[in-house]
Design a protein around this nucleic acid. Structure first.
Length: 207
DNA sequence: CTGCTGATAGACT
DNA sequence: GTCTATCAGCAGC
């Protein structure tokens, strides 16, 4: 996809990313996935976005030009990857939540040995990032540059009739916004889990 | 299939 | 201190 197309608003770009192909050169070999699930985030009016409270060293890529990877570390062990959107100066990004492996299946299975079925290889944002080997050092990469180690290319577009929308997964703030988009025909769409609610310690016990 | 839990580091109140 | 744009493993249908 061209930088110009990605420089539009996140709500316009997100559904258009479905069906695109993300290729990465991993230490185990090249892997390509078809993007089947995404979520939109933007600074302007979205409390759930990392950029909502202003620019910091971590979220700086979201404020830069479109078409660059925003990779962040979560839960002390996982990475998640976004593609920056909107013109330079306006912060927004689309989280890549799930994909289907196009090639090389052998390399993919090597990279994700715990996946029980092929549909699970890139089912979930951290699984997708892990499969493609995306880490801190990939933050800021230009995916529209053919010379980059991670590239986004146009694939077969998912018809609008097959695109479903709903609330974002695991998001507490702005939980009602239907800013998640997925290919309803894909078996590799990640499981929905509502934001908020989580049990940490037994009720009434302080330990 | 559904639901629960621990692991684990860093950004932020 | 508290919360997180998560995952794998396991229990119980």
């Amino acid at each position: 996809m061209s930088r110009a197309e990605l420089a539009a608003d996140v709500l316009q770009v997100a559904p258009r990313l479905l069906g695109t192909v993300l290729e990465a050169d991993t230490p185990d070999g090249p892997v390509a996935v078809r993007v089947v699930e995404v979520e939109a985030y933007r600074a302007a009016d979205d409390p759930a976005s990392h950029s909502y409270r202003g620019r910091t060293p971590r979220n700086a890529v979201m404020f830069g030009p479109a078409g660059h990877l925003y990779v962040y570390f979560v839960y002390g062990m996982h990475f998640c990857a976004n593609v920056s959107c909107l013109p330079d100066g306006e912060a927004g990004a689309v989280l890549l939540r799930a994909g289907e492996v196009l090639s090389d299946l052998g390399v993919a299975r090597l990279r994700r040995p715990t996946a029980r079925r092929d549909d699970d290889l890139a089912r979930g944002p951290a699984r997708l990032a892990s499969l493609l080997g995306l880490r801190r050092e990939h933050n800021g990469i230009d995916v529209t540059d053919a010379a980059s180690p991670v590239r986004l290319r146009v694939g077969e577009r998912v018809p609008d009739s097959r695109i479903a929308t709903g609330p974002r997964v695991g998001v507490a703030a702005a939980a009602a916004l239907p800013w998640r988009f997925w290919d309803a025909a894909s078996p590799a769409v990640s499981a929905y889990r509502p934001g908020r609610e989580r049990h940490r310690i037994a009720p009434g016990r302080k330990r």
